[in-house]
Design a protein around this nucleic acid. Structure first.
Lengths: 255, 255
DNA sequence: AAACCTTTTGCGGGTTCCCGCAAATTAGCT
DNA sequence: AGCTAATTTGCGGGAACCCGCAAAAGGTTT
């Protein structure tokens, strides 16, 4: 009986797999439809929508076992779309593909991916071979696969920049949102001095110190994070949406 | 004789126009090649290169009267490529096309376009009709054409945000680079208080004031500018390259 | 030239930020 | 429990930032 359940939820190599493609660029979309047709004979039905909101809707009603999701889209961000899709269907396998190798996206994805699922992250510039491999590995076999180009950002750098911890990353986001030290302390529930300690280690890791020291560390840190693709504008938009309600509540509380 | 000169430099509707396409995305590139073939019979020879550096080289040696330039490219930025192309051949007509409607790009272009030339800015999501129109208007007729979607960012907004002056924009860039007030004053050759005045008006125009006042104005301003697409990461990269030499010289001077 | 407007500059002080120092708390290990 | 390393927190002070106020310097109009 457990097998029957699993079969229903994960029609592995049946031959009637439904696939949802969410991609706003029509050329990439048609290329992807074509490639899937060639490489994945298991797929019997392909649905294509052109933006994140429609993708969420379709995924909610359609109950797709496999989704291909563009990360850069007008309106809803790819990572956010994935979050709501996974909230409704935690077993959905999602292959992200993106124009850029942004560490920020990868971080966003890895923090929301459920245990029961699989995901992949490939670049749009990747070869047809690697794309086919990823399609099969992630959507059919349920593996996790991340393009080597993306992880590269972690290691290599002009100097051995170490990767940020989760807590450092969250204060980085708050910093880039324009919050003040006190506000960050409030939001993350810690003391003012601790926030400043986090900032201190942030400044070190982003190498804000060793530039002659004449910079404004606050804005320089944001600058470094953006240019090294640790942070991107899309994640800032998403973070702003999370900040809004909290800040409104805080204002109400204090009055 | 003047006519002969003009004909040599601007082979208007001869039927042997050379065209250079600089575009890293192969799907968009092949689509563009196809479209040009359909719409511009005047073009006898199309060259396609996949990144900005190669584009600059090719344009320098090839002497193209018309160029199509992607704005988002790995390596050299589209606006920078245009600058060097125009430096060598000021009469070159360039059609920019982009994924995004960023005010920052438009500002960058309008400040470097020579009097003798023409340019256009269209979005990749634009209809084939409008694209064809722009191709003809800019590359053949030498008109200036900007997609309506892009100018929209100037006017509409949640509140009537006014557009920045040139001087305000330059301090915004310096701010986003992480410079300190004093450094900006140095760089732009004005007093410290003047810099702060500029920042003041920046804060007003970016509406940093009317948010409860609990924000760090410096980073919040950068945040607003990024989210409203007044500024983008590509222009920051370009600005950083300009800053580098100046800052090195300043360090040498002070020691 | 006089009146007027805009921009620039200096001064002063209130606030926030940056960070060294040391005590307190927590986490990890035997 | 007991010991050690790491993290958190408070305190304090120097630097940078934010900005009101008012004088000085340019630029325009009449």
């Amino acid at each position: 009986m457990g097998d029957a359940d699993r079969a229903a939820i994960r029609p592995d190599r049946g031959s009637d797999m439904k696939l949802l493609i969410v991609e706003d660029d029509q050329f990439h979309a048609s290329f992807m439809v074509e490639t899937v047709g060639d490489i994945l004979p298991e797929v019997s039905e392909i649905t294509h929508v052109a933006d994140g909101d429609k993708g969420e809707e379709e995924a909610k009603s359609g109950d797709y076992p496999a989704v291909i999701l563009d990360l850069q889209m007008p309106g809803r961000n790819g990572v956010e779309a994935a979050r709501t899709i996974w909230a409704a269907h935690p077993e959905t396998r999602i292959l992200f593909w993106s124009n850029y190798a942004d560490e920020a996206y990868l971080r966003g994805i890895t923090t929301i991916v459920p245990e029961t699922s699989a995901y992949g992250y490939v670049l749009k510039t990747t070869s047809a071979n690697r794309l086919g491999l990823a399609l099969r590995a992630v959507l059919i076999e349920g593996q996790i696969m991340v393009d080597r180009e993306i992880n590269r950002y972690h290691q290599r750098a002009t100097t051995p920049r170490s990767t940020l911890t989760e807590s450092e990353f969250s204060v980085l986001v708050d910093l880039a949102l324009g919050l003040t030290d006190k506000l960050i302390a409030d939001r993350r529930a810690m003391s003012l001095r601790s926030v400043q300690n986090r900032l201190l280690s942030l400044y070190q890791k982003l190498e804000v110190d060793d530039e002659g020291g004449a910079f404004n560390k606050r804005t320089r840190a944001v600058n470094r994070a953006l240019l090294t693709r640790m942070l991107n504008v899309e994640t800032l938009i998403a973070a702003e949406r999370e900040l809004g309600p909290w800040y409104a509540k805080k204002l109400a509380r204090s009055e």
